[in-house]
Design a protein around this nucleic acid. Structure first.
Lengths: 120, 120
DNA sequence: TTGACATATTCCGATATCGGTATATAATGT
DNA sequence: ACATTATATACCGATATCGGAATATGTCAA
């Protein structure tokens, strides 16, 4: 059978370093494609294509200003990631099996006692 | 030129839905490969391969117990994602240009004034 | 309209990724 | 040693992804 269609989502979009870099820049200030190209050293088509991916998952939006396009980040679209990460972390902290960690810690370092703090 | 080597990192590992599902299960309790296969409806090789990716980026660890392997999640390896997400969010909140949002809001809804709260 | 500039899209080649099937490896029990 | 169970790996085919080069589209100015 074939590969599962990725139906590009936020997680996927953020999986690419160049796209994260674009988001980093846009988080500080909205920018035109040309500015991103200069700032990040991307080729122009490369930038346009990554911006398209980001646009399609809702992470950025753009408006036309003169003959160029100004992109800005759309924070709320990060929600699925934030939610997943938060819930995962909560679940980890909640179900953490201290015995396992105790054993693992004993196995590696016999000198210091295992930390009993909340895990992150 | 060729495609940039992905040097699989945490962001990439988490980009796949099946791997996120594996992490979801492991966040609640450590499990053997077989348990993951049953629980998630994956094929056995599929599970092993995804677990390998997760292992290589440090998101899971395993130990041998009898003839099977028990995998557990390793929370701290999520740090890069948490850090990135947090800093991005902070940057967004810090540099948010209220005028833009005001205009955008005015354009879509002329009835309610723009929210002046911190963005998420 | 024509030209200049900015951006988007198309086409292409190289490669990465995913899933399936078959097989190898490891641990246990008889 | 042999069989059984559990997991990992190798191999393969289909497809997705990325980057580059060339081209199309859109906007403005003269």
């Amino acid at each position: 059978m074939a590969r599962q269609s990725t139906t590009s989502d936020v997680f996927n979009a953020v999986g690419d370093l160049h796209r994260r870099e674009i988001l980093d820049v846009l988080a500080a200030r909205e920018s035109t494609v040309g500015e991103l190209v200069d700032r990040l050293g991307l080729s122009q088509p490369q930038a346009s294509k990554h911006l398209r991916v980001l646009r399609e998952v809702g992470l950025v939006r753009c408006r036309t200003k003169g003959s160029s396009r100004v992109y800005r980040i759309h924070g709320p679209s990060l929600a699925p990631m934030r939610t997943w990460l938060t819930q995962l972390t909560e679940s980890i902290n909640e179900h953490y099996d201290r015995l396992d960690d105790y054993l693992a810690t004993m196995q590696s370092t016999t000198t210091s006692p295992p930390e009993s703090e909340i895990r992150t």
